[in-house]
Amino acid sequence: MPTRNSAARSIGSAMVAGLARLRSPFARGAARRRNQDEFFAELLRQLARMTEEVRRANLIQEYRIAMEQMDRTMDDPSLADARSTLGGISEAKRRQMIFANRQYASLLLSYRIGTFDWRELLGHLRILCRNSLFAEYWDRTGEHRRSLPADSVERRVGEAVDTIMEELADDPDEWWVVGHLGEPPCP
């Protein structure tokens, strides 16, 4: 019997060793797959960051083009008629309205590219809304904002300005606390 047990042990040991050898490539394969998965996950994160940077660069470029057009309309009154939809105002008032639009657009861009967070944007808007020329611009351009998609950032920021304007009308002495709105729109 001792020979039989030692033979069985030899066979058992050989089988265990054989199974270990069989598992070894699978274990290495699993580790290799894990490494590949980690590599691809990191690659996707980097691609997402690059995509966001390209989106921000495009926003900045679009803003730059719009501001160049506004500058040209402010410099050349004959172009202002083509750019502005506000009727019945003097050339000087039109320039002021274009400049007010430019100030608002600058704040909106700063929020959209991440320079300001929602609270900082509201703080800047509270100050801007205290300006009577901006308030007039905002009132005259209400119809423009109604055409924006309900889920757009610009529409949501416009609604925040509307709230600030309403609260300022109710209590102008408390200007620094008006416009406390909930969740910010995604830039």
Rank of each mutant, 00 (worst) to 15 (best):
D75R: 15
D71M: 13
E174S: 15
E166M: 07
S147C: 06
M165L: 02
R34K: 10
L125P: 02
N5I: 13
R21K: 10
V178D: 01
T115P: 02
I113L: 05
L107G: 01
L86E: 08
L133I: 15
E167K: 01
I11L: 07
E91D: 13
L168K: 03
L79I: 13
E143F: 05
G114W: 04
F40G: 06
L181K: 08
A92Q: 15
R49A: 11
C129Q: 05
I11W: 05
C129S: 07
L47R: 12
R140L: 06
T115D: 08
W175L: 01
L168Q: 03
T141M: 00
Y63M: 03
W138G: 02
D171Q: 02
A160Y: 01
D151I: 05
A41L: 09
L79P: 07
F39Q: 12
L108V: 13
R34S: 14
Y104G: 02
L43T: 14
W176H: 10
R4M: 12
R34N: 09
E68R: 12
L148W: 02
D117R: 09
S84T: 03
S78P: 08
G179P: 04
D37Q: 14
R33V: 09
W118R: 08
R140M: 00
R119V: 13
F116A: 09
K93A: 08
S13K: 07
N131H: 14
N58M: 11
L109Y: 00
G87W: 01
S147T: 15
Q61M: 09
D139L: 10
V54T: 11
T3A: 12
D81M: 08
A27N: 12
S10I: 09
L19S: 12
F116S: 06
N5A: 11
D151N: 14
E167Q: 11
H144Y: 15
